[in-house]
Amino acid sequence: MQTMTISPAADALDIGDETLAGHERVLFCRDDESGLRAIIAIHDTTLGPGLGGTRFKAYPSDQDALHDVLRLSRGMTSKNAAAGLPFGGAKAVIIGDPRTAKTPELLRAYGRFVDSLEGRYVTAADLGTNSDDLDVIGEVTTHVTGRTAAAGGSGDSGPATALGVFSAMRAGAERQWDEGLKGRVVGVEGAGKVGGVLTRLLLDAGATVVVADPDPAARERVSAATGGAVQLAETLTGPELDVYAPCALGATVTVERARSFGARLVCGAANNQLPTPHEDAALHAAGILWVPDYVANAGGVIHLAGAERLRRSPEEVTADVRRIGDTAREILTRSAESGIPTGAAADEVVAARLAAARA
């Protein structure tokens, strides 16, 4: 049996200590036959349908899952607005261990919930899901992006995410040191599909790269792909780094951690990098330049939206991704001229674009 609970759009519905106020719709989805338990959060559709990935993860509690999807969906509103895309913010989480719980039946059940929203939410891949999974979801809904090329999609968006982070990082280096990344020591935290591509781009730019990941196999894959040109570590240590690039889980960026690495620039692919909003001002006061995560990591959604929804050519999509560097420069300049933290400057850009759309 499939069941779905929809939160009131305008009410402040509390579940534990988490409020749903500010979200247009939050759906709690369950399919007993497949074992599916999922939450779809639509934050803001001012600019268009909510576009954001589906995270498949074993959460400690349902409260943790709810907290994650609410933060992620808010971030997608900011990401899509900052990138200039005609899409709003939404995200979903499937609760469970993807290594054991993921089945075609479960993915199809989830796809039917997505389809029931009639286009208000367009899903994509995230942690724990990939293009093959999206092919299965796409069997029951058209509101999906990032399927394999064989299924009519544009494939893995990881390389585009990495290119966007690289473009933003180069803009940050120009602001912090009046030069590019050549000769800088960059610590990449996370040797997944984004971190691996980012590492190769950094090496091509003349940077020295330290790649950290707790998984030895992941580290070795990056080492093999780069001909052993990187330094490998289980965790990042300092103080030899110039740049800290968080490309794994969020909530890892603090002033204390950046200082322990010696990093003066923070720019990476992870979502929700700051554990609290107060870290934005703290980083600014410490002279550590942070390129806001939702600006730097927008390459993936630009790729998916451009290639599959806006029907742009591969060359046009790549150019759009590279323009993340220009967006980063605009925000860093606003921060410097106004004397405000970079996150606050990015939020001002997003707020202006949303206000213009509402008007």
Rank of each mutant, 00 (worst) to 15 (best):
V210D: 01
G138H: 06
A173M: 07
V197K: 07
A205F: 12
G152K: 14
A191F: 06
A150G: 14
V186A: 00
S131T: 15
T100G: 04
A101L: 14
D126P: 06
G152A: 10
F166T: 00
L198C: 10
P159R: 00
T208Q: 14
D135S: 13
T100H: 02
V93F: 07
L201N: 00
L201K: 12
E105D: 15
V209I: 06
G146A: 11
G128N: 06
L201A: 01
G183F: 05
G196F: 03
D115L: 02
N130G: 14
G172M: 09
G119L: 10
G89M: 09
T103Y: 08
L198I: 02
S157M: 13
T100I: 09
E189L: 14
T141N: 02
G158I: 08
Y121E: 02
G111H: 09
T103E: 10
A171N: 09
A173D: 03
D97R: 14
K91C: 09
L203N: 08
A168R: 04
L163A: 14
R184T: 05
G187C: 10
F87P: 05
E174S: 13
L106E: 02
G111E: 00
D135L: 11
V140T: 13
V185R: 15
D97H: 11
A160C: 12
D135F: 06
I94S: 00
A90N: 05
R112Y: 11
R112N: 09
G146N: 02
G187S: 04
V122S: 01
S157G: 05
L181F: 06
A149N: 07
V186W: 11
T100Y: 07
P159Q: 13
T145P: 01
L127M: 15
A124P: 05
A205E: 10
I95S: 00
D132S: 15
A205P: 13
G152D: 11
V136E: 04
P159W: 03
V114M: 04
V114A: 03
L134Q: 01
G146Q: 10
K91L: 08
L202D: 00
P104F: 11
A207R: 03
V194H: 00
D156K: 08
V209G: 06
D132E: 15
A207M: 04
